[in-house]
Nucleic acid binder design. Structure first.
Lengths: 208, 208
DNA sequence: CACGTTCCGATGCGCTCGCATCGGAACTGT
DNA sequence: ACAGTTCCGATGCGAGCGCATCGGAACGTG
């Protein structure tokens, strides 16, 4: 068993290179040669790690998806004591990738999403991440709902899944609008905060 | 003044071809040759109409942007008698491009949005459409607010611009999630309806 | 220490791309 | 009719792409 190489770490490094290029020039600007250059490996190495360009992109999108999901999860675990509402706000802000240092991730994610609209395998990979995030949010909302039940009327039958869908879509839309410069990051943060506040109010009952 | 050709209509035809291809294969799949084929003109004609590929894409995105905005405007003018809330709901549904026959437009739009994240001129063009839509929504919301003022407390200082931003972002996010198959069109419609209903309730006062 | 296996950097191939070029068709004004 | 202008279809070019190929370097094993 001769010379062995840690394929997995190399694949991850290549994925990072893919993301860097996709951030700067869009998905169309991602070529095998440039990826190899940026990852400081030769083209041959890239070809050995991935059977084709598509396989490489698929791995990259899965990689970044995991990274985002993991960051949200970490954010939640890191501060379990605070109220569910606060946690929800943080998580939503995190998912909206509003911080400047996450702008790159957002651009890459958007590029993949657009491509997924015409590529079935890519769409499948993306759905995994979205499903994970939606579930995460839904559980968080359900938890908040039962830890702080409606005051009296018990009127609003808040559906955690539905609310999670809304929150996720809103965060995604806001991120997109910030990326193309239609909104500022503050605009988006305000909208998101207001939405979370509204959700929180509905959870804790209709009373003021 | 020799042979004259209706450049404008030709440009529009070419733009339609661009959209058709972008819908089927994504923006990367749009080549001058294929565009010419689909538009039933020669490559030379395309090159004469547009100085470069980028210019062609820019025109195409402006074209489809106008088409969407115009459709929403028409939808509103067509039924001016109904309540502002109902109109808002219709407009939002329209903008979310949820109907199956608008799926193509949605895919094309998404492709351009993603590209705009790394292309300044494209972003500028897109912002025009988004600004128009946001203003449209904001005016509609403001109108609804004054035609149906808060019942008593007059507490909630609903900001039309902010609400318009939220609605637009939510619609965009939902459209995206439907496109990649994370949500069904019904899911999205439900979420959108619920959001509009919530907004309406906030407009007409905090009372049940 | 040689052998066998695994790995990869360099190179080449076939293809497609956007764009430039140009000769002739199409058409109007005289 | 004919000259002048506008238009466009065909063709060529250089560049860049993804992928296949292969000879040799690197390294565990007997």
């Amino acid at each position: 068993m001769p010379r062995q190489v840690d394929h997995e770490s190399r694949r991850r490094r290549i994925a990072e290179a893919v993301c860097g290029l996709a951030d700067e020039r869009g998905l169309e600007g991602v070529t095998l040669r440039d990826v190899a250059d940026r990852a400081q490996v030769s083209m041959g190495a890239v070809q050995r790690c991935f059977g084709s360009k598509e396989e490489m992109l698929l791995f990259a999108v899965g990689h970044i998806g995991e990274r985002i999901t993991e960051r949200v999860r970490t954010r939640l675990k890191g501060s379990p004591s605070q109220s569910a509402a606060t946690a929800l706000g943080y998580a939503a802000t995190e998912i909206a990738l509003l911080r400047r240092d996450h702008r790159a991730e957002a651009r890459v994610w958007l590029a993949f999403v657009a491509q997924a609209a015409v590529s079935a395998p890519l769409a499948t990979t993306l759905r995994i991440s979205y499903a994970a995030l939606q579930d995460l949010f839904a559980h968080l909302i359900a938890e908040a709902a039962e830890s702080d039940p409606p005051g009296d009327g018990g009127s609003a039958p808040v559906d955690p899944q539905q609310e999670a869908r809304a929150l996720l879509a809103l965060a995604d839309g806001l991120t997109t609008h910030v990326l193309i410069g239609h909104l500022t990051a503050e605009n988006a943060a305000d909208v998101l905060d207001a939405h979370v506040a509204g959700l929180w109010k509905r959870l804790s009952g209709t009373a003021t």
